[in-house]
Amino acid sequence: TYYTVKSGDTANKIAAQYGVSVANLRSWNGISGDLIFVGQKLIVKKG
């Protein structure tokens, strides 16, 4: 599943929404920190 980042989103918020850990969200998308951008497409695997 892909999720498009919206204004006000955070890695924590997206992870919680899908029931996954922030560490997994980072791993699936090659993100090292919490910096995400509006319009960015993230791979999300439901927990």
Results as ranks from 00 to 15, higher is better:
T1M: 14
T1N: 11
T1I: 14
Y2L: 09
Y2P: 04
Y2A: 05
Y3C: 08
Y3D: 02
Y3N: 02
Y3V: 08
Y3A: 04
Y3P: 02
T4W: 11
T4G: 03
T4R: 07
T4C: 11
T4L: 08
T4I: 15
V5E: 02
V5G: 03
K6Q: 13
K6H: 07
K6I: 10
K6M: 11
K6D: 05
S7H: 13
S7C: 15
S7A: 15
S7T: 13
G8T: 06
G8D: 06
G8P: 02
G8I: 03
D9I: 00
D9K: 00
D9S: 00
T10Q: 04
T10F: 03
A11R: 01
A11V: 15
A11Q: 11
A11D: 06
N12R: 13
N12E: 15
N12C: 15
N12Q: 15
N12G: 13
N12H: 14
N12V: 15
K13F: 09
K13L: 10
K13Q: 11
K13M: 12
K13A: 12
I14E: 00
I14M: 01
I14A: 00
I14L: 05
I14T: 00
I14G: 00
A15R: 02
A15G: 04
A15F: 02
A15N: 01
A15I: 03
A15C: 08
A15D: 01
A16I: 12
A16S: 10
A16E: 13
Q17M: 15
Q17G: 06
Q17E: 13
Y18M: 10
Y18F: 15
G19N: 10
G19F: 07
G19R: 07
G19K: 08
G19Y: 06
G19S: 08
V20I: 15
V20M: 09
V20S: 03
V20H: 01
V20K: 00
V20A: 04
S21K: 06
S21V: 04
S21E: 08
S21L: 07
V22R: 03
V22M: 10
V22Q: 05
A23Q: 12
A23G: 09
A23D: 14
A23Y: 06
N24C: 15
N24Q: 15
N24I: 11
N24A: 11
L25K: 00
L25V: 05
L25Y: 00
L25M: 04
L25W: 00
R26D: 04
R26T: 10
R26C: 15
S27D: 15
S27I: 13
S27R: 12
S27Q: 13
W28M: 07
W28V: 03
W28R: 01
N29T: 01
N29D: 01
N29Q: 02
G30M: 09
G30R: 08
G30Y: 08
G30P: 06
G30F: 09
I31M: 12
I31H: 04
I31F: 14
I31K: 04
I31Q: 05
S32W: 10
S32P: 09
S32L: 13
S32I: 15
S32R: 10
S32F: 11
G33Y: 06
G33C: 08
G33S: 09
G33E: 10
G33L: 14
G33P: 07
G33I: 10
G33T: 09
D34L: 08
D34N: 10
D34F: 08
D34V: 07
D34W: 07
L35F: 13
L35D: 15
L35R: 11
L35P: 08
L35M: 13
L35N: 14
L35E: 15
L35V: 12
L35H: 12
I36D: 02
I36W: 06
I36H: 02
I36V: 10
I36Q: 02
I36A: 03
I36F: 09
I36L: 14
I36K: 02
I36C: 04
F37R: 09
F37D: 07
F37H: 10
F37E: 11
F37N: 09
F37I: 11
F37C: 10
V38R: 05
V38N: 05
V38F: 05
V38Y: 05
G39C: 04
G39F: 04
G39I: 03
Q40A: 06
Q40I: 06
Q40D: 07
Q40E: 06
Q40K: 05
Q40Y: 03
Q40V: 06
K41A: 08
K41R: 13
K41D: 07
L42D: 00
L42N: 00
L42G: 01
L42Y: 00
I43R: 08
I43H: 05
I43E: 05
V44C: 02
V44Y: 03
V44A: 02
V44L: 07
V44R: 00
V44K: 00
V44N: 01
V44P: 01
K45Y: 14
K45V: 11
K45R: 13
K45T: 11
K45N: 12
K46P: 15
K46T: 13
K46S: 11
K46V: 14
K46I: 15
K46F: 14
G47Q: 13
G47F: 11
G47R: 10
G47A: 13
